[in-house]
Amino acid sequence: MIEFSNYDILRNLLFATQWTILLSLAAFIGGTTVALTLTALRLTRNPTIQRIVKVYVELFQGTPLLMQMFLCFFGLSMLGYEISAWGAAILSLTFFTSAFLVEIWRGCIDTLPKGQWEASRCLGLSFLQTLRFIILPQAIRVATAPTVGFSVQVIKGTALASVIGFVELTKVGTMLNNATFEPFKIFTLVALIYFVLCYPLSLYSKHLEKKFNVSR
């Protein structure tokens, strides 16, 4: 058996943290892109599209992220699409992130007074102009705080990638635990690292929310 000093443990965990961060970033970027597209589609007010988006959201919010990961990883490869753990993790986290962001942003857009749309259209602005100059600037102001807040859920969500074998922080934690039999120390450290990643974002989100509430 290899001996692990505290230094070794920490070094391994911190190295794995890079993958957690990378996966979080990829999922967040992927999720934001999909969510933006879906939100834009939704704004067209086409009832069929809106229904499809709604089903999408309910499907991914109503099933476990872990199940989505299994489906992406084992399910797709069974169907003949070879996919790495990394790919499956990004794919499922993108679904997961986008479903929640679409819903969060819908709430933000809905809080804008309906009169804003009508007033702008009366002024002769086109749909896109209204969106670009009237709705988006306001919606973005409202949406920033909850979006930053949700990024914490994304980071925590990446921990599930360990289950399909992607080597990130949690996975390295379990591996180190198997090697050292020091679960208390290892999982305390793992939890602390996640905390250090997430807490500043939580604080920032709260700060933005306060700032926004004061300014209006």
């Binding site: 925590k156 969500g157 939580s202």
Partner: peptide, 8 residues
Amino acid sequence: RNTPFIVQ
């Protein structure tokens, strides 16, 4: 709130 459930 700032750590994953699986780690908890």
